[in-house]
Simulated assay, not measured.
Amino acid sequence: MLTEFKSEIIKNNFNVYGIVVIKDGIKVAEHHFMPEERRQLYSVTKSFTSTAVGLAISEGYFSINDNVLKFFQDEIPKNISPEHLKNLEKVTVERLLTMSIQDYPFVRLTCDNWLKHILSVPVPNIDEKVFQYSNWSSYLAGAIVEKTTKMNLIQYLQLRLFEPLGIENVECEYSPEGHFYGATGMKLTINELSRFGQVYLQEGYYNGKQLLPKEWVASATKKQIETREGGYGYYFWRYKENCYRASGMRGQMCIVIPDKNAVIAVMSDLENDSEEVRQCIWDTIYTKL
């Protein structure tokens, strides 16, 4: 199955570390161009944040329609204007999950308190629900999980997700004030990532247990907002042929293909070739599933 894929990767000098293909619950193909080890997932991390949000909502910690004022009273600047405060009331969990706050830029924060900084930024365009990719949204979403559960997000996911998937001692990044980054920084192996995709393919069910609410999996992975790439769910990208993916910078990806009952996980270190590698997967593997 992977012969043509490997040939194309080598021919085009794509810096792909490895690939795992699961079909009908069975690993049918695997190849490592480099020894397998835990690698930076970049924005694939966001899909784990989404998973934690879904679990916390299902356990009654908060609602998708709750606004940020409910969770961050201590971080809201005391001198913000009434208009700013009124706009923050419209920054809901749902708006964070859909990346639909166009006043939140895609920049990495360098200050000492990320929460206070983000909440101090005016959101005058909050009434316009337009896709604006930003790490700020997923950072806030993860912090909400931690505030309400009173647990580190990785700790919260440990018994609920990681342990059933056989994933131990997950590495990740934290903000200066100690919150899980939420947007990037997690490290996993390609096989660990593929098992995460398998949980979603099976609508939250894995190894005899319902790990994630089926309803959340459906909501998180369907198109919630339009994008140039074809749509976005709750930190999952919609993809062609009714597929969706957890996707990170430099070619980290976990593609879930319901119509083929398959998962394809890839780890890479690419500059600007992610779409080319995805197309290579489509041309050489998808048609063989």
Rank of each mutant, 00 (worst) to 15 (best):
V121Q: 15
Y174W: 10
T189K: 12
S194P: 07
Q155K: 13
V20S: 02
D273Y: 02
E30C: 11
K46M: 01
E171K: 09
A265L: 06
Y174C: 06
V123K: 08
Q252Y: 02
Y205F: 14
S43T: 01
S268R: 00
W114Q: 13
V20P: 05
Y61A: 13
P122Y: 01
K223V: 04
I9G: 05
F180T: 01
I22D: 02
R228C: 05
H31I: 14
W282D: 15
F48H: 03
K129S: 14
Y17G: 07
I285D: 02
D259Y: 03
R38C: 08
L193S: 05
E128V: 11
I281W: 03
K6V: 14
T92E: 12
D259Q: 12
V53L: 13
F62H: 11
G208C: 06
Q132M: 13
V263P: 00
K209L: 11
R95S: 05
K70A: 13
G178R: 11
K214S: 15
N207Y: 09
Y239D: 11
C243K: 00
V20R: 06
A56V: 08
A220M: 00
N15G: 04
E226I: 11
N152D: 15
E83W: 03
T3R: 11
P35S: 14
G204R: 05
T3W: 03
V256W: 00
M34W: 07
V170T: 10
G248Q: 02
Q224Y: 04
K70G: 05
G233Y: 00
V53H: 08
N87M: 13
N79K: 11
